[in-house]
Design a binder for these strands. Structure first.
Length: 562
RNA sequence: GUACUCGUAGCUCAGUUGGAUAGAGCAUUAGACUCCGACUCUAAAGGCCGCUGGUUCGACUCCAGUCGAGUACACCA
């Protein structure tokens, strides 16, 4: 809830619209300066008066009343103080009345947003490098649905390319069917790594790989069967992780899906005169835009990454008629997407501006070196999840041994810790993976917010809320901070959606949890007189509800006890 | 070399259209469980916001330059 409009209506300045005034009104950092303020410096020149004089003058002519309790002129600022009792009451009642729909919106009604995320490679392990795209994409998916949009989750599978030829060769040479069925991707990775090692000294292997990939392309029965088998094995395995992380997709159309959809795109590029030949390849020249050319067809006639992504973009536009189409892909691909979007612009489709590369930083190993699948240098996400869940279980045993559903709670806390840590910082930050960090459950972590949720539950179990309320009991710094954090939540969701930043949600949840814990220590709830107790209980209930809601959007569950 | 991204406390990071005294967490030190859940809370200490210049009444925020780090740059995806 926002009172900027009401305040702006109280102020009249010659030559300045109410809209402009409203935009200038902000919340002071220092609470003692009030709840809202209007800096008057900007009017100084036009009015030929000092900001102090302007603020003084405005103060004289202002009619206060209702929720605005006091106005002051301080050092060029006009400071407004709200009637906290009224304000707190309005916010809390609103949060509780809206329940799990607090902050829900319909601004996205009738609009579809395609989100390309996770997009795993077939026959390769699901490692820490995939965590960001997976959880960021899934959080945006939920967020947009919550704001009234229709999200389409797309797992653009990496299921095409010469690596499948390599894998077939490796399988034929060293593979063991039973072993692969039992150990899945781990076994596939082993022979894949072995292939690269052997290929260093035996160049004929690469030739064979090319041969077998061609067989897949030409529909050879044996090759196709193996290819499908690799895909199935990978998907069943990765599905377990998606289940643990509460992640779903509406489409698994990956690279192979677009094989027969590229020629029309190439034809259209030709028709529009955008293609030229360079070193034998067909490219779109992007010199005018200070970019290297975008390769569409290789010298040998084969298509490329960009060709496929073009076909995918057109397919998505045609199929979903999206309002926006997001690519949650690491920033390494920056140039690729800039080229891709530019080519679509040059093809004269104005929806190129609805395409967005939602870039994020990269994850490196504990020693700072990059992850290298081909060398088997990976941190498996499953291992990380298992370790954090195990650690959560140990802590529960230590602190809450009598808990009846201990394993279930450990799963929530462990996976919650991993997801939260991946979503707490801005997307663009690089991450050096550290077990110490993900295994830490104190301070700014997922478990901290879950703990706060459980603590709220515990308080609420002690007493029923009745209707006798005295909001003056909440008129203190700590409670006000909690209410402010709750009040901001809906607009933070909108900002998070605007900027594709799930971290805003994580931060908002953290703010609420921290503010509540401070409140909890400063004020007694249960032993307070009924009317005071009730408002504190309402506050507690609201906090509990919004934490659950925020974490829910991030894909994190909350335990009633932990 | 060119383009993009990042540079804030010892470490990891917030700082949302430029606004009053730059904030958290971890780590360190000192404290708080006969009291609603101590995975918590209180306090101390910790800063030429990489550097220089410019715009502005006002710059961590915008612009230019510079240094440092990362990423990408032709037939992989």
């Amino acid at each position: 809830m926002d009172y900027k409009k009401q305040i702006a209506a109280l102020i009249k300045i010659e030559g300045v619209t109410a809209q402009d005034i409203e935009e200038l009104i902000t919340k002071p950092k220092e609470v003692s300066n009030g709840d809202y303020c209007l800096p008057c410096f900007r009017f100084s020149k036009a009015l030929r008066k000092s900001p102090m004089a302007i603020a003084d003058e405005l103060l004289q002519n202002i009619q206060i009343g209702g929720i605005i309790e006091r106005v002051e002129s301080v050092a060029g600022y006009l400071n407004f103080k709200l009637n906290r009792e009224q304000y707190n009451c309005q916010i809390l009642e609103k949060v509780l009345a809206d329940g799990e729909n607090y902050g829900r919106s319909d601004i996205g009604r009738g609009k579809t947003i395609c989100i390309d995320y996770s997009s795993i490679n077939i026959a390769k392990p699901f490692h820490m490098g995939h965590l960001s795209t997976t959880v960021i994409g899934a959080a945006l998916y939920r967020l947009y649905n919550f704001l009234g949009y229709k999200s389409i989750g797309i797992n653009h599978l990496g299921d095409w390319g010469t690596q499948f030829g390599k894998l077939i060769v490796a399988y034929k040479l060293w593979g063991n069917k039973e072993d692969i069925e039992k150990r899945g991707v781990a076994a596939l990775l082993e022979i894949y790594v072995k292939f690269h090692k052997e290929a260093e000294s035996d160049s004929s292997l690469d030739e064979q790989a090319r041969y077998w990939f061609k067989q897949i392309e030409d529909g050879n029965v044996e090759a196709t069967a193996l290819f499908k088998w690799f895909k199935e094995i990978t998907l069943t395995e990765v599905d377990k992780i998606y289940k643990r992380l509460k992640i779903q997709f509406d489409s698994y159309n990956g690279e192979s899906f677009y094989n027969d959809k590229m020629q029309p795109v190439i034809d259209e590029l030709e028709e529009k005169g955008l293609l030229q030949t360079s070193e034998g390849a067909r490219v779109v020249n992007l010199d005018d835009y200070k970019m290297p050319p975008c390769l569409i067809v290789k010298a040998d006639g084969a298509t490329l990454y960009a060709t496929r992504d073009l076909a995918a973009a057109f397919y998505r536009k045609k199929t979903y008629n999206f309002y926006k189409s997001l690519y949650v892909v690491a920033y390494q691909q920056n140039l690729h997407f800039k080229q891709l979007f530019k080519v679509i612009e040059l093809m004269d489709y104005d929806w190129y501006k609805d395409l967005e590369h939602v870039a994020f930083g990269m994850v490196s190993m504990e020693d700072g070196s990059p992850i290298k699948t081909r060398e088997g240098k990976v941190i498996l996400l499953e291992d990380v999840l298992n370790k954090t869940v195990e650690r959560a279980y140990e802590i529960l045993t230590l602190k809450s041994d009598s808990l009846e559903n201990k394993s279930e709670v450990a799963e929530m806390v462990g996976t919650g810790a991993v997801i939260f840590s991946a979503l707490y910082n801005s997307r663009i930050k690089d991450i050096v993976f550290s077990y110490d960090r993900v295994l830490s459950f104190e301070g700014e972590t997922g478990p901290y917010t879950q703990y706060t949720y459980a603590r709220c539950g515990s308080v609420l179990r002690k007493e029923e809320i009745t209707e006798v309320c005295d909001y003056s009991a909440l008129n203190n710094v700590e409670a006000n901070d909690v209410i402010d954090a709750l009040a901001k939540f809906p607009s933070i969701l909108l900002d998070a959606a605007d900027r594709y930043e799930p971290s805003y949600i994580a931060r908002a949840v953290m703010d609420i949890a921290q503010a509540y814990n401070k409140f909890y220590f400063a004020h007694r709830i249960i032993d307070a007189p009924e009317a005071a107790r009730n408002v504190s209980l309402k506050l507690t209930k609201a906090v509990k509800q919004v934490i659950a809601e925020g974490l829910g959007l991030l894909g994190i569950e909350v335990p009633e006890k932990m």
